[in-house]
């Protein structure tokens, strides 16, 4: 009996390690593939170079880094206020029966394939922007709006959990001092849930910066540093997906190097989220 128990324990451990193993493999692989070209081009040249002409040997990804950052920032500007408002209503004001229905519904948003978001963006949002705001329509603005919606389920769901984790005892104490429900939320629940909410926003950021398909479909993918929100942009992820099919040699390595940059950005975000969530 005991040996069988041990055996199962070992098998489970192996399964757990396999997940970490694949992470390690991915890391090693992209670094092996991508690092040589960074070293050859020079790190600062690679990151701060604005000229990307891989077939001619120019590997500067600054335009794409900036585009990724702008698109992510835009997604936060649109998505976070909406998500927080929604989370506050569902966590604090809506009757629990309504929250029980609405929260899973919002979480369904996360299950919609990103190509569907992109499709909706192309047929609904892009023409609207082109008609009413000008420019090509396929733009930084379109990508930000679509991503703003795509990060909603992540930010809402984790924010609600963070607010629910604030003990009822605190709320009662506040109400018993004569606070209104809104005062209680603003002065007590939000500060108490702050680390959870920041974590939610950072994870939303990670989702926005890593999103590929929807962005390719609505961002226009022009290779330049955007000067207006109506400009067409190409993000880091979009560039990898668009060019990997025909890239070879140094070009292919440069795409892996782009992957390294993304990998490091996401690692930083996730580490920050974990550190903040762990702080109480």
């Amino acid at each position: 009996m005991l040996t069988r128990e041990k055996l199962i324990e070992k098998a489970l451990l192996l399964l757990a390690l396999s997940a970490i193993g694949s992470l390690a493999l991915i890391t090693i692989f992209i670094f092996l593939e991508g690092l040589p070209i960074i070293l050859k081009t020079g790190l600062s040249h690679f990151i701060f170079g604005a000229h990307w002409a891989p077939t001619k040997g120019h590997f500067g990804i600054l335009a794409m880094i900036l585009s990724s950052l702008y698109v992510t920032l835009g997604a936060l500007i649109f998505g976070v206020p909406l998500a927080l408002g929604c989370a506050i209503v569902l966590a604090e004001f809506a009757p629990p029966s309504l929250t029980r229905i609405l929260k899973p519904t919002i979480e369904l948003l996360a299950g919609i394939p990103s190509v569907v978001y992109g499709f909706l963006g192309v047929i609904l949002l892009v023409p609207l922007i082109r008609t009413y705001l000008g420019g090509p329509g396929l733009s930084l603005l379109a990508a930000s709006l679509i991503l703003g919606i795509m990060i909603l389920p992540t930010v809402i769901s984790i924010s609600i959990d963070a607010m629910h984790a604030v003990p009822t005892l605190y709320r009662e104490g506040s109400i018993a001092l004569g606070a209104t429900q809104w005062q209680t939320v603003r002065k007590l629940v939000l500060p108490a849930a702050r680390s959870g909410i920041i974590t939610a926003i950072i994870l939303g950021m990670g989702r926005a910066i890593g999103e590929t398909m929807a962005v390719i479909m609505v961002a226009g993918n022009a290779l330049s540093i955007p000067t207006s929100i109506l400009d067409s942009v190409r993000t880091l992820t979009a560039n990898i997906a668009l060019e990997l099919g025909y890239a070879s040699g140094a070009h292919r390595e440069a795409l892996f190097a782009t992957g390294i940059v993304l990998f490091i950005i996401i690692m930083i975000l996730n580490t920050a989220a974990t550190l903040i969530a762990g702080r109480r």
Partner: peptide
């Protein structure tokens, strides 16, 4: 209250 509930401030 029964359990002391100072706010986390």
């Amino acid at each position: 209250f029964q359990r002391p509930n100072p706010f986390p401030l």
